[in-house]
């Protein structure tokens, strides 16, 4: 396939199209507007549907409806809109419905700003809505990865019958890079033959629901969900960069992971032995690799574009086996590789 030069947002939209997405529902919000704008042309051309919903609440519920038909469907938004989608995401998790939800994280809380931030890590990774559920969360660090992970998001959503989140930010969304697209998938327009709704012709009616009122039914349902989340642990993905001889392991995801990589390259030339683990799946979290690196006596530094969220998962992973420092870039400030030099040197010396 010929290489193309596109924005991260467009890479996600194009990725969805090539992965067989047939319905897109969205509501305008910066910095992700390229996605609905692309989809408003691409979906009808592909014989699919584009709806500009009346709100993010409605868009997420349209996704729920499309998912109930076993169709590949997607919605996207940015932080304030993601708050509004949470009820539907919780219902989708409870009703075991597959769908892809993109969050191009911007600064918060409240209206915040329209710049990059990783302030929604907790919301994305710890459930976000009500109830004891999980969504799988993929965090691209490049435009190519934004494209590729969108394919993976659809695959995982249907494999696990679960909502899958793509967590980017204003940097990933607005950055332009060359990518190599894949061959468009020829997917069954209606998957989930054993559960999708289509009218109860010659069979028992199917019910997609999250309500379980009879004695013990909800406990049984929650157990089934938990077993599914356990099974999904094998989907863990991460990038490992120069960790072998490193005395300090930096853990950073998404755009920050990529910027930190540049800092490490520079510091390596000056003899500083730092390496990187960049989680690509934020849920499931790459705990095993972090634990085994901790057991080798390496120190840790978590860097995030927030004041400390993923660091809690890093510390849970290494269970006190190693020293673990944190550097937070305040949302509202645009990070550069220089910002991270001193924090890394300090952590190496501590």
């Amino acid at each position: 396939m010929a290489r193309i030069f596109i924005k991260g947002n467009v890479a996600i939209a194009r990725g969805a199209l090539d992965a067989g997405c047939k319905c897109y529902f969205g509501y305008p919000i910066t910095p992700q507007n390229d996605i609905p704008e692309f989809m408003s042309r691409a979906m009808p051309e592909a014989g699919g549907e584009f709806v500009q919903a009346e709100s993010e609440v409605a868009a997420a519920n349209m996704l729920l409806g499309a998912a109930a038909c076993g169709i590949r469907a997607m919605t996207s938004s940015s932080s304030p809109g993601m708050s509004l989608k949470q009820e539907a995401i919780s219902y989708m998790a409870g009703s075991e419905l597959p769908g892809v939800i993109v969050n191009m994280n911007r600064g918060g809380p409240g209206l915040g700003d329209i710049g990059p931030s990783q302030g929604d890590y907790f919301q994305a990774v710890k459930g976000g809505g009500h109830g004891d559920y999980r969504t799988l969360v993929l965090a691209p660090g490049t435009v190519q990865e934004a494209y590729d992970l969108t394919f993976l998001a659809f695959e995982l959503a249907f494999a696990y019958r679960n909502p899958v989140l793509i967590l980017g930010d204003a940097i990933i969304g607005q950055m332009q890079e060359p990518i190599t697209p894949s061959k468009p998938l020829a997917v069954d327009p209606f998957e989930g033959g054993s559960w999708r709704l289509e009218g109860a012709r010659q069979r028992e009616a199917r019910i997609l629901k999250s309500l379980h009122l009879t004695d013990g039914a909800l406990a049984g349902h929650n157990l089934k969900l938990q077993e599914k989340y356990k099974r999904a642990e094998k989907e863990v993905r991460f990038e490992e960069f120069m960790t072998d001889d490193a005395s300090l392991i930096i853990v950073a995801y998404g755009s920050i992971g990529r910027i930190v990589k540049s800092t490490i390259r520079k510091l390596r030339k000056e003899g500083y032995k730092a390496g990187l683990i960049r989680p690509v799946t934020l849920y499931p979290f790459p705990s095993q690799i972090l634990k085994s690196l901790a057991e080798q006596g390496k120190k840790f530094l978590t860097i995030e574009h927030n004041m400390g969220q993923m660091v809690e998962d890093v510390r849970l992973s290494i269970c006190g086996l190693a020293h673990s420092a944190f550097h937070g870039q305040l949302p509202g400030n645009l990070p550069t590789p220089n910002d991270f030099e001193q924090p890394i040197i300090n952590a190496l010396r501590s």
Binding site: E49, M62, G65, A66, A68, I71, A88, Y91, G199, A205
Partner: peptide, 22 residues
């Protein structure tokens, strides 16, 4: 009937997603 449960108030949005798909 084949039935999907919509969150409180959201049935017309869910039905939009269903009808646009099928």
């Amino acid at each position: 009937l084949d039935t999907v449960e919509a969150p409180h108030g959201r049935a017309p949005a869910v039905a939009t997603g269903v009808k646009r798909s099928r």
